[in-house]
Write a protein that binds this DNA or RNA. Structure first.
Length: 255
DNA sequence: AATAGGCCCAACCGCGACGGT
DNA sequence: AACCGTCGCGGTTGGGCCTAT
């Protein structure tokens, strides 16, 4: 048996919203909020389903929405966030005040995906051959105060395995990105295989590049430990990294 | 000027998560 | 535990606009 429709379609209007409908919706929400989207259209005098009203409000009518073109800075932020979060548009939107997930999704598919692919192509053409070593990523100490450690931008990494010549270089496909928050063992394996280190030509240069999802961070060799240095100094990046740190398998050169 | 193709974006669809019963 | 209703999310669609020919 098929799934029942989200609302009674008969008699309900679909398609673009008129100014009158917008006015009714804004007016109602201003006075009453939106405790129940399903009941809202009837109470507001709209011939729409609740889902349509919610979408119109969250993607277009909300007063805190920033209209207009994305700035270069916003575009770069989206690309970086996408490297970490994958297709989690709502999570990306939460970090871009005034922008909606729908808007970000649209700009990604129309412009930024192409832009990202072009810059990746340039990078891969200029990068040297890589060497890989498996290690396990763990926190430097057992402190519960993660943020104090995060703010120092230093995470010690303990090497547990020897070099693995058969290791592959990480994938940067769309699919791998979408798996970053998955928790099944199959997905976890995918995450591990997708998070391999790419190393400088000279592994003793004390500066290597690790890839966390599609995001590059540089690892400095200091006193038999690697320290992660990243341009991503916002706490959200490190929160994400720590949240998944037990699942991440980086590849590092042997100390 | 006509039109084909690409781009952009608002809106829709279907699914999974979640809370209440 | 199972069921149901609701919400939010990501993927997709379709129509208007723009541009090249």
């Amino acid at each position: 048996m098929g799934r029942s429709p989200c609302c009674e379609k008969l008699g309900l209007k679909r398609g673009p919203w008129s100014k009158e409908e917008d006015y009714l919706l804004i007016n109602y929400i201003k006075k009453n909020g939106h405790p129940n989207w399903r009941a809202l259209p009837k109470l507001a005098g709209l011939l729409r389903c609740g889902k349509s009203c919610r979408l119109r409000w969250t993607n277009y009518l909300r007063p805190d929405i920033k209209r207009g073109n994305f700035t270069h800075q916003e575009e770069d932020t989206i690309i970086k966030l996408h490297q970490v979060l994958g297709n989690s548009w709502s999570a990306i939107a939460a970090r871009l005040p005034g922008r909606t997930d729908n808007e970000i999704k649209n700009i990604w598919h129309t412009r930024l995906k192409k832009k990202r692919n072009e810059s990746q192509l340039k990078e891969t053409q200029s990068e040297p051959e890589n060497t890989n070593v498996d290690v396990h990523l763990e926190e430097a100490n057992n402190s519960n105060d993660k943020h104090s450690e995060i703010s120092n931008l230093k995470i010690n990494i303990e090497i547990q395995q020897q070099p693995s010549p058969s290791s592959s270089v990480s994938s940067s496909s769309e699919d791998s990105c979408s798996n970053t928050t998955a928790t099944s063992s199959e997905s976890r394996n995918q995450i591990m295989s997708d998070n391999l280190l790419e190393i400088d030509d000279d592994i003793w240069s004390e500066v290597v590049w690790a890839q966390v999802d599609d995001n590059y961070v540089d690892l400095s060799l200091m006193e038999d430990n690697y320290h992660i240095n990243s341009s991503f100094d916002d706490n959200w990046f490190w929160d994400d990294l720590f949240t998944r740190s037990n699942e991440l398998m980086l590849e590092l050169p042997e100390l």
